[in-house]
Write a protein that binds this DNA or RNA. Structure first.
Lengths: 193, 193
DNA sequence: TTACTTATTGAACATCTGTTCATTAAAATC
DNA sequence: GATTTTAATGAACAGATGTTCAATAAGTAA
């Protein structure tokens, strides 16, 4: 099972393409492994040679999306003119642009019949970004008995809470609105709301 | 399909018992509907008369657990002696006792192959409790452009973030530790960490 | 080009899913 | 207690899952 073998690359590509085609027609939970294999013209046994479930195939896309999240986070923040963001890390706030860009994708991630795995992948992504910043920037200001891990989990999931609320309104609120909400919440909480 | 019909009550009870028996042996995702029906001595067609998936059966338990969560939240807070909790709503902090009490159950809820539905049921439970308090207690102190819905989602999911971190350490930290972490985080953030 | 390695295939298998339908039997209603 | 209503049953169905295996073909390496 060397990943450089052309046969493996071709098979995986065919399965990728088939999944994308089917996802444009119906949600993931209505797509069967057998269907993906028929579409990809790949033997069903071959599928199980590479993945355990269709979710495994989906996760390979997730990795690419997470790459964009990391880049969104690293990217220098531009055009802050309309926001009162002086109190918070501007990078954090780029996350909503990323979600907006892939909202088709996140509609799947947050749909209720999908396994929790995807949620954890998003959580882990935001968690590790926040943890890095919290460790380097805020540790010296924090109460010494706060666990960095718990604190990062708290902050990361709080942001996902906003995204869940956003998703439930079918992402109809603007990115600007989300940015304002996060800014206001952080400001409010700091001043003792 | 009147829910008072004795036949329905008996059938559901048999399915409930069967699920509990099987859950003590293996995780939900490894239990098939056919298996539950064999164990319950109920025809498989009858199962589909009452539920669409095994998850629907599981959700009926969830409702009972949520009842306990609501009671935990309402219950007057006792034995605060060791905690520095003067800054936060003591009710909030009762949530960790509830999770601890049903940790066997929450190990399922947070396992990665389970559908997101359960997460949302927990989220909605905490969300509505927090929202009620936020609406009645804090609205007058808050920045007026903060959406109560977003703010509640933020706070509810932040708490679940702590629970996820706790779960990932297999709930080995004590309830007291969790209470201290939440207290410290809220205190820290208020004083501008 | 040849020889070696290994991914893919097709077929088969037991089991599960989701649904339908006539039949049976248990509960509700009179 | 007799009658009506309806939940539960068993059988059957097409399709899906997850696995195994020998045969084949596609790729790699000499």
């Amino acid at each position: 099972m060397r990943t450089t073998d052309l046969r493996i690359i071709k098979t995986k590509q065919a399965l990728h393409d088939a999944l994308l085609t089917l996802l444009s027609q119906k949600p993931l939970e209505q797509i069967s492994i057998a269907e993906i294999c028929r579409e990809a013209k790949v033997n069903r046994g071959t599928f199980y040679l590479h993945y355990e479930q269709k979710e495994g195939l989906f996760e390979e896309y997730f990795q690419e999306i997470m790459e964009d999240l990391y880049q969104s986070y690293e990217e220098p923040y531009r055009a802050v003119t309309t926001l009162d963001t002086n109190q918070l890390d501007p990078n954090t706030i780029r996350i909503f642009h990323h979600i907006e860009r892939f909202k088709m994708f996140y509609r799947i991630v947050f749909s209720k019949n999908v396994p929790l795995t995807y949620y954890y992948m998003l959580f882990d992504g935001i968690y590790s970004l926040l943890k890095r910043d919290i460790t380097t920037q805020h540790i010296h200001q924090m109460e010494d008995h706060i666990s960095i891990d718990y604190y990062s989990a708290y902050q990361a999931n709080a942001i996902i809470g906003l995204i869940i609320q956003w998703y439930r309104g079918d992402f109809s609120d603007s990115v600007t609105m989300l940015n304002q909400q996060l800014a206001a919440i952080l400001k409010n909480v700091r001043s003792g709301g």
